[in-house]
Structures are given as structure tokens and as C-alpha cells.
Write a protein that binds this DNA or RNA. Structure first.
Lengths: 237, 237
DNA sequence: CCAAAAGTGTTGCAACTACACCCATGG
DNA sequence: CCATGGGTGTAGTTGCAACACTTTTGG
């Protein structure tokens, strides 16, 4: 069952990719996490690199396998190659294998040294159909502000991904990748405020967004809340 | 002779590090390049990662082996993992091995697939004592504006390093890493102008530099040129 | 009417740009 | 003297933050 995660001649040895998959829901920035079978060990979506596969492709494949999505904003941000990143590997390996109670499941790869290439992905939360995969029995979106302790150095990887994303936020307008095709101005603002972790004055934010000349206001208005009528916007093509 | 470059159990398989070593001399931003024995194939300073070595340490070691320097500003900027990066490997491998004419030299590693982790280093040109190492017979500083065709995708790696360096130039004040302990204001400006590839108004640049409150003006003046007397500066501790 | 959403105007600050102009000094 | 290096002043621009205020609209 775990055969495709075993190290065979199909995969490059000692190398993995890890995807920090960000989504935005209920005014929270969330990360997609996986939980190993019968344990409470949470980890990022990761995988290996095929011998006939680009590293970027491997990351896109991992993303696809867990979310069913393609053509997603996916960016390499750092490569983690410290020996210490596996310091706790033996311990966690034990707890994982013990919990699984199946001596046939070869999880020895967990305790080997890996250099992992970190990618972050920005996806439309509502479009994701989560698939935990073979080695996990659960997958959940977890608020970035309330992350549990993660496998190995995955907490560090998430933090580094957040940093990288913040850097590119204005420059590359990646906030829209987290939203659907249409969105209200306050939704965009919520994304910015959550990622940058600070309040923004509405009027100034709105002016700035509109001055970028990348948004189209859709005449059809939002048929939602109690006493309101926010406009919907769409990105210009 | 080439034994330490062969893949043995001492090195991680399929992984390398490449260092883009920048120096500044005669108003030019230069990169340290190596030339394989008896060929005209130029490449970056690269190496493998020891099984008991952090990736960062491997990069620092490579830098040390070629320049004799330690405690250098060295930053990971990208990991190159495309299959195509080795597309020309076979061809270049042939030209290299043929030129070397020594069937004993195992250069088969050249045509294998490698994922390489890119680092850039900023060094004081005048402090470098170049050591070409075992597989190269020459090492030279080459003006960034006149790079030859490099081994594999090393041109791409240099360009990506330049981009990354530009990004961090203001933010982290890395320009000073390229200068000696003391320097004139126009030297700093030359570094900035070369890296950013644009002219800067002298007065504004000077004001900005001094306003950062990181420079100490040394009373002793520069005993150099024809009709002038530029001040020397030093970084505050 | 009321509350939320949207839009307009203004003020002030900080950073940067582009010049004009000054002083100092070594040959 | 003059060419070069070094320094000051100032006017214009831009982006941003903060705040006040008005308008629109659905219930």
C-alpha cells in the first residue's frame, strides 16, 4: 500500500518536496495539513521527485494529488538541508510506526536524511477536494494562527513560506489567488490583513486597489447579508 | 586525483551546491569562474554535500576551498531541479573528457542528473586567494556584463543570483560585503550603480547613505588621485 | 430609519528626485 | 586658476496614513 512512498529506483534518493498549501476561509488564512494513520502527527503535503520529473512538476503533482487542482500558483521558496531537521525523526518514526502497528508498512524512509525543497501554493479554498492519500487518514485546513506541532521541521517550513508570501504579496498581487473568480472588496482586504497581520484603513486600501487598474466591478450586486449591498469584483483579463 | 568528486558513500547522491561568488573590482561586478582542465568550459564553483554535513556548510566549504575565505555573506537563493538542466550534459561531458584525454578520470558524474542548490556569496575581491581545485586548471574573475557561455545552466543560475542580490541590496545593506574595511563614498555608489545597473544622483545617494547612520568617516583622507581628497568611510560596529 | 457598503475630499508626513549652488583642496 | 570631491538647500512628486464626511441601498 505504501509502495509508492518507498525508495525505489523510481524516485530520486534523499530528496523530497513539501507543499505549504494556503487557503482562505472564514477570514482565516489556513494551511492544508495531513495526519499520519492512527497518530496525531501532522505534516505538510509532501512527496518525492521522480527520476524523470522536474522538481517543479513533482511539487505540482503533490499539490494535485492532495487537492485535485492544477494550474495553481505554486512557488519554490527555500530548500531545507540541515542535518538537524531529522533529529527528531527517529523518535517520531517510532511513534508513528508503533501507532500503525503494522510491521509491513515500510516507513524507514522517515528516519533517513532528506533534503526537502519547499513550495507554497495559493488555492481557492472552495475548489479543493481534499484527498489524504495513502499514508494519512485525515487532511484538514488549519488556521495559520493556531498551528499544532508539526512533523520534523515543518513548522519552520510554514513560517518561511509565510515570510516569502508576504514579500510577494504586493509585488505580484498573489492575494487574488486565494479568492474565487469574484469577490468583494472587503474580502480582498481581509486576505491582506490576515496575511500581513495588521489592520488596514478601508478607504485607503480601496483607493489603492482600484488605482491598480486590475479590477472590474461587476454590475450585478451581491445578494447576501442583512442590510447591505457590496459590489463584486473580478480580475481584469 | 578526482576521487573526492566521485560519488561515494561520503556524499549525498544527486545533490550539489553551486556558489555564485561575487566580487567588485575596477568598477565591475565580477563572478569567480572555474575552467575545467584543458577545456574552455567555464563553470561556477560547485561541490557535493557530505552525508554528515548541512547544506549551508557544504556551500561554505566550497567557498572556502576556492577562495580561502570564511565568515562570508553566503545566501541560498534557489534550487535548480529541472531535468533539462542536464540536457547538454552528455555533449559537454564528451568534450571535457576528450580534452582531458585521461580515461582514468571518472567524470561520469557530469552526465548524471543533479539537483543543485544555488548560493551567492559576496566577498572582498582583494582578500581572495583563488584556488582552482582538482578538476579545474584555471579560475578567473569575469565581469558580469561579459559572461561567456557557462557549463550546463550556470548562466541561468548567475542571473537568478543577481536578481536575488538586487532584491536584498537595500534591505540588508549587502553592498558593503563587496568592499574592504574602508572605502570612499563613490566606491559604494559604484557598487550600487553596477548592481542595480542604473545611474544614481550623487548628492541624494550620499545623503541617504549618511542618514542610515551606519558609516563612520575616518579623518585620515585618501592619499590617492590627481586633484582630489575623498574621505574614507568604515562601517559602524 | 438604520446599518453596512461605497465613495470623495483633505491634510500631513516621509521618502525620493532633480537641480542649483556652495566650499575645500591639490596640482 | 580649475577640476574633482564633498556638502547644503530647496522645490516637486509620490505614496501612504488618518480622518471626516456623504451617498447608496436593502430590510
Amino acid at each position: 500500500m505504501l509502495s509508492r512512498f518507498k525508495q525505489t529506483e523510481l524516485w530520486l534518493p534523499g530528496i523530497s518536496v513539501d507543499c505549504v498549501i494556503f487557503g482562505f476561509h472564514e477570514n482565516q488564512l489556513k494551511v492544508l495539513l495531513l495526519k499520519f494513520h492512527n497518530t496525531h502527527v501532522w505534516s505538510l503535503a509532501g512527496g518525492f521527485v521522480g527520476v524523470e520529473e522536474n522538481v517543479d512538476q513533482a511539487a505540482a503533482r503533490v499539490l494535485y494529488e492532495r487537492t485535485g487542482l492544477t494550474d495553481i500558483y505554486l512557488k519554490q521558496f527555500y530548500t531545507f538541508g540541515d542535518l538537524e531537521r531529522n533529529d527528531r525523526a527517529a523518535e517520531e518514526h517510532r511513534s508513528v510506526t508503533t501507532a500503525m502497528g503494522s510491521p509491513d508498512d515500510d516507513l524507514s524512509w522517515m528516519s533517513k536524511r532528506y533534503i526537502t525543497i519547499g513550495y507554497y501554493a495559493l488555492v481557492d479554498y472552495s475548489k479543493v477536494v481534499v484527498n489524504p492519500g495513502d499514508i494519512s487518514d485525515a487532511a484538514d485546513w488549519v488556521d495559520i494562527a493556531a498551528l499544532p506541532h508539526l512533523f520534523l521541521d515543518h513548522n519552520k517550513i510554514v513560517n518561511k513560506a509565510l515570510e516569502a508570501m508576504r514579500q510577494s504579496l504586493d509585488e505580484k498581487l498573489i492575494a487574488f489567488e486565494l479568492l474565487g473568480d469574484t469577490f468583494t472588496m472587503s474580502e480582498i482586504q481581509a486576505v491582506y490583513e490576515t496575511i500581513l497581520d495588521k489592520k488596514i484603513v478601508r478607504t485607503n486600501f480601496q483607493r489603492k486597489m482600484l488605482s491598480l487598474d486590475i479590477l472590474v466591478r461587476i454590475e450585478k450586486k451581491f445578494t447576501g447579508g442583512a442590510h447591505k449591498a457590496p459590489y463584486l469584483y473580478r480580475l481584469k483579463p
